[in-house]
Design a protein around this nucleic acid. Sequence first.
RNA 1: GGGCGCAUAGCUCAGUUGGGAGAGCGCCUGCCUUACAAGCAGGAUGUCGGAGGUUCAAGUCCUUCUGCGCCCACCA
Length: 904
Amino acid sequence: MEIPKTYDKSREAEIYSRWLEGGYFRASAENGKAQGKKPYTIMMPPPNITSQLHMGHALNNTIQDILIRFKRMQGFETLWMPGTDHAAIATEVVVMKALAQQGITKDDLGREGFLEKLWEWNEEYGGRIINQLKKLGCSCDWERLRFTMDEGLSDAVLEAFVRLYEEDKIYRGERLVNWCVKCQTSISDAEVEHKDTEGYLYHFKYPVEGVGHIAFATTRPETMLGDTAIAVAPNDDRYKDLVGKFAEVPMVGRKIPIIEDSYVDPEYGTGVVKITPAHDPNDFEVGNRHDLPRINIMNNDGTINEIGGTAYQGLTREDARKKIIEDMTARGLYIKAEPLTHAVGEHDRCGTAIEPLMQLQWFVKMDALAKPALDAYTSGKLKFNRERFGKTYAHWLENIRDWCISRQLWWGHRIPAYYCENGHITVSKSVPEKCSTCGAIHLTQDEDVLDTWFSSALWPFSTLGWPEKTSELDYFYPTNTLVTDRGIIFFWVARMMFMGEKFMGEIPFTHVFINGTVNDEHGRKMSKSLGNGIDPLEIIDDFGADTLRLMLTNGGALDNDTRFFRERLEPARNFLNKLWNATRFVIMNMDGFNESLEHYTHARGLTQQLEDEWITDLTNRLVVEVAEKLEAHEIGMAVGKIVDFIWDEFCDWYIEMVKPRLYGVQKAMETGDETAIENAKKLRFTAQYTLGMVLDTLFKVLHPITPFITEDLFLALNHATGTPSEVRTITTQPWPVLYPAKAGVVSLAEKSIERMKEAIRAIRAVRTEKQVPPSKKIAIIVVPMDEESRILFNFTKDFFTALSGASHVDMQDPDVAIPSSTVSIVVSGANIYLPMDALVDREKENARLTKEKQKLEQEIARIDSKLANEGFMAKAPEALVAAEREKREDFAAKLAKVNEELKG
RNA sequence: GGGCGCAUAGCUCAGUUGGGAGAGCGCCUGCCUUACAAGCAGGAUGUCGGAGGUUCAAGUCCUUCUGCGCCCACCA
């Protein structure tokens, strides 16, 4: 079979559908229990149905897929639960826009009609991102796909609401809420984005009965219409005579008291604050303390209402502000306006300035709920991949306020509260027949729906069947790792924590991995408004999902922000191409392997060569180290180790080392010597065997990162080596175990091969420096300094000859005279002579040696000064001192040789 | 205003308990060596943002300054 020379990404879709057909991603509580497997569960942060895959999703889901595939190979019963959330506001906005094109409004359709349109829209577009995740290679259990408005999840929402209500943890009350005058709904604190805005600080004064005026400042003059007090700091000498007197709000003629409250900072401005309890959160608190009336002067659309006075009624916030400034000026009460940059809250979905408005809304009482969620972190049960994220989490919970959960929307879970004509509230999962307080039978349900995050907060257990006691819930809950981005630590992570603790009695996960943000090439956030977003699907089309996944995870610290640009994909693509070709090479050189398998499997004396042992040892260590890194969620490091190993050790060294053995049979056949042929075949066989085994292992450790190419190559290699046909996929293969790891032990094979690499590198460096082309083969003389080295050079003669570009290698004893026209190289355990006098430029050679000498002297001086340092000798670990001494000896020996060389 | 992060080679970034400064890309030299030119071999490149401190030893710990970035926040 011909294999193309370049990495073939076009098979990804086909491979993926084969996986689905095989059902390899399915999780089963029953099977897991029956087989005594431990569960490993990840809950995918449900993207909302309006979203399409962006780079953040790509990174986030690649991380999850790596962890879940790794755990699956390790033999866990793995569940990666996928799903979507209904995103009440975002979805309504999208659908309303679509309807607006046809000239239809939400109100034209009515609640029922609009909901029908929303479901239709969800039917058509809600699954887009799911298909996009499949292109990325995500190995979710898609048969369990959930949506926050599924029947089961909706039931969980009602159950949770009713229980919290019955325990008095949910209440309805008049509070100032963040009101979006455009969306006409309240929103939670977390949905408010604060932006620095250029504005003015307006200075005015109000007349005070009998004593003139009192000056104050405000950024929002229109709220003056709702003022119900003037406040000064307690014991402020400037104003102590005024406290208790009444000022007058001119436009509405209201008399308001002058009070003292510690909220006022006497140092700021004039030390006087006007108090508008119905339109400012602080003033609301002050109002409570002083029992002030709350005067709401605004309609829900942001215009002034009838209480604001006939002169202003119907004006927008902005117009009312202008008119009030004019009117105050006319009355001589306007002082000045100074430019001011201040933070103004905006709705994160539509960018409209938030208006704090008094509303009857539903709230979740947070103090009692937040405590266990905070304790879980402080006690160490909940771990974040970086401490700083834990701090953010804790800080938020420590300063949490009650959560406004009602939204004046239609798309979502309608609040299960019913009102009778006497104003009583009945909360019930199903429509109640009568009022639970007075028995009245005419009940109307609350018009509002719940905050989307209320349902998302239940996600870890609602998706597993709660409130039913399912075996899934029993087996898979609590989950293991949550992978998400910084932006929703508050929205989602914290809320899942307290809901899980509340309803399951156990936190929903023990590890949180917060991934960094994928920015554009200049480090700016990718955003629609900037138009700098890069579509992962385009990248997948151009490079393949594996390349994208590898680029996103290789080397980096995944908790740090990263910059994305197309050029960064090339190294990843090049690596996959390298792996592809290495496999192609191995497959091409499997001639005779199957016959040999039968011949030699039971044959004695088929020991591995030194280089086989070496690469096996290294591969074994790699497997252990990668597993350790993945366990520790150091994904970037795990990936980096694999990539470096495959490229450097396996491809650049091992494959080159075994080439003479692979080609040896052919050569032996030319001689016709039966014994030689048989020996060559044995050598070839062990090379083929080791190549296949190591490569097979490498595919497995790489599989979680780049699942498609490893599946493809794994099957191709197994086909070539004649592995039984029941091996149909790499996804269900166990994580490789070659033999028990010898942690930290450097094997003899490893030390030996490292020495050979050093020798080869040294020869290559000299050759390059002297500009000897690779095609020019030269005779090399090796003089081993001891018996061990002599054996080593003998054992590795074949590849040593090939890799150093030698025509042949002569082993000589130290007492044999070396031809004078040679260049000598000193390596560990041997002197090497390149008889290439004709090619040597004496001046260049001396320059090289001098440079080498200086370098060695420097190193020795460095170590000497260290060894002469009393502090170091007294306090440094013994092993370190010994290592330094050893290095010094080594350098000194080389220096002696170099000096000798320079003399001669 | 509070909290946090980043600053290391020309560029993008690693550097896990303090112990000889790394990778990829780019650059220079030589190679189409029967897997791969998306490749191979060799090479150059850093007062690890500035200043102090702790230590025998600091990119790594502490203090402070500068320049970016993020999050939180009710100073009228």
